[in-house]
Nucleic acid binder design. Sequence first.
DNA 1: TTTATCACTATACTTTAGTATATCACTATA
DNA 2: TATAGTGATATACTAAAGTATAGTGATAAA
Lengths: 120, 120
Amino acid sequence: MKKQLSLKEIKSCPVEYVLNINDTLNVISGKWKLPIIGSVLFGKKRFTDIQRNISKITPRMLSKELKELELNGVLIRTVYETTPVSVEYELSQSGKLITEVLDKMIEWGVEHRKSVLKKS
Amino acid sequence: MKKQLSLKEIKSCPVEYVLNINDTLNVISGKWKLPIIGSVLFGKKRFTDIQRNISKITPRMLSKELKELELNGVLIRTVYETTPVSVEYELSQSGKLITEVLDKMIEWGVEHRKSVLKKS
DNA sequence: TTTATCACTATACTTTAGTATATCACTATA
DNA sequence: TATAGTGATATACTAAAGTATAGTGATAAA
């Protein structure tokens, strides 16, 4: 098994640095992951709720991405044995915390745009 | 021209939220952008330096990605009229600041992995 | 009886991202 | 004269990501 490195060790090793960022990047990149996270950000949602929320997503993509997000521990999937079954998706504890990363991205983006506009 | 929204306005509008994160995401996603940023993180680098640094990248990809990063205002390209010409790439001011986002990503990733391991 | 809802899956397709390999014009060194 | 280094570009390809469209089985309402 791979040794767990400390934050300090990761940030000081270029290879680990890139690998660890990629791990996080994989959780949020692709066309639909972010909209899905956005959709469940304010509480539990069902499959069709999310689908209605993100009008252009196909069920194939939604199903695929939900599975991946669940596998990655970002979403929690709960099945209720009603008829027909209902399934609810919600953010896990660390799924909720990813907003800290997202907010940082927005902040950088806004500042970056300012500095690009200034120069042109 | 599009109105510049404040941080508050962006964070409170789901559509703007996703759009703005995507802007930042586009700067760092893809197979090679992060390794390139990593390579120039500690100072100016030339085309072949970066190529040697990232041993598996093809010149086509390196050229393509450098162009995109320059266009996005993350990298600055300087041409020196030596013979043969030499070209140096370095991070712009806000290019340097993107490390704040990257560090946040590492921090979340490390905590997230901990919480996933705990549960299994 | 037809239609709709639920949460999906199957198949075939297109589009985008990335790879492989060769080449450019120039110059300096062996 | 042959070879290597400079910073790339051209063409053709494969692989990955995403789209389009139809269909599943159970149930319940019109």
